[in-house]
Amino acid sequence: MSRIPILFEDGEALVIDKPGGLPIERPRKGGPSLEDHLADLRLGFQRDPVAVHRIDTDTSGCLLLARNPKALKRFAKAFEDRLVGKRYLGILAAIPEENEGTIELALSKISSAEKGWRMIAAKKGKPSITHWQVLGDHDGHALVEFRPETGRTHQIRVHALTGLGIPLLGDPVYGDGKGAPRTMLHAASLIVPREGKPPIEASAPLPRDFAALGFSDG
Rank of each mutant, 00 (worst) to 15 (best):
W117T: 15
F79M: 09
P49A: 07
N99Q: 15
E9F: 00
A211P: 00
E145Y: 00
L190F: 10
I91G: 02
E104W: 11
V173K: 15
P19I: 11
K18P: 06
K124A: 11
S60N: 10
R82L: 06
G116K: 12
D217G: 09
S203M: 14
R194E: 00
D56C: 03
M1D: 03
K86F: 02
A187F: 07
A160W: 05
K178W: 04
V173A: 08
R26A: 10
L190V: 07
L105M: 15
P69R: 13
I103R: 09
G125V: 11
P199A: 14
S2M: 07
I55F: 01
Q46M: 07
L206R: 04
P199T: 14
K115Y: 04
L190K: 05
D176G: 01
K197V: 00
K123G: 07
P27F: 09
L63E: 10
V15W: 01
A212K: 03
T57R: 15
F215A: 02
L72N: 13
P167Y: 10
A39M: 00
K77R: 14
A94F: 04
R157N: 08
D139C: 11
L168I: 15
E201D: 13
G163Q: 15
G20E: 05
T59M: 01
R67H: 04
L14F: 00
P5M: 02
P198T: 01
G125S: 10
G21W: 07
A93M: 03
D10Q: 02
A13F: 00
M1R: 10
T153D: 06
I24K: 02
E114D: 09
A66V: 09
G175A: 05
P19F: 12
L92P: 14
A187D: 05
L161F: 09
R28N: 14
G101T: 06
W132P: 08
A211L: 13
I110M: 02
K29Y: 13
L92G: 13
P96T: 11
G31N: 05
S216C: 03
P49W: 04
F45N: 08
V15S: 01
E195L: 14
P181Q: 03
G196W: 02
P127S: 12
L65R: 01
L92N: 12
F79I: 03
R194P: 00
T59Q: 00
P69V: 07
L22E: 06
S189Q: 15
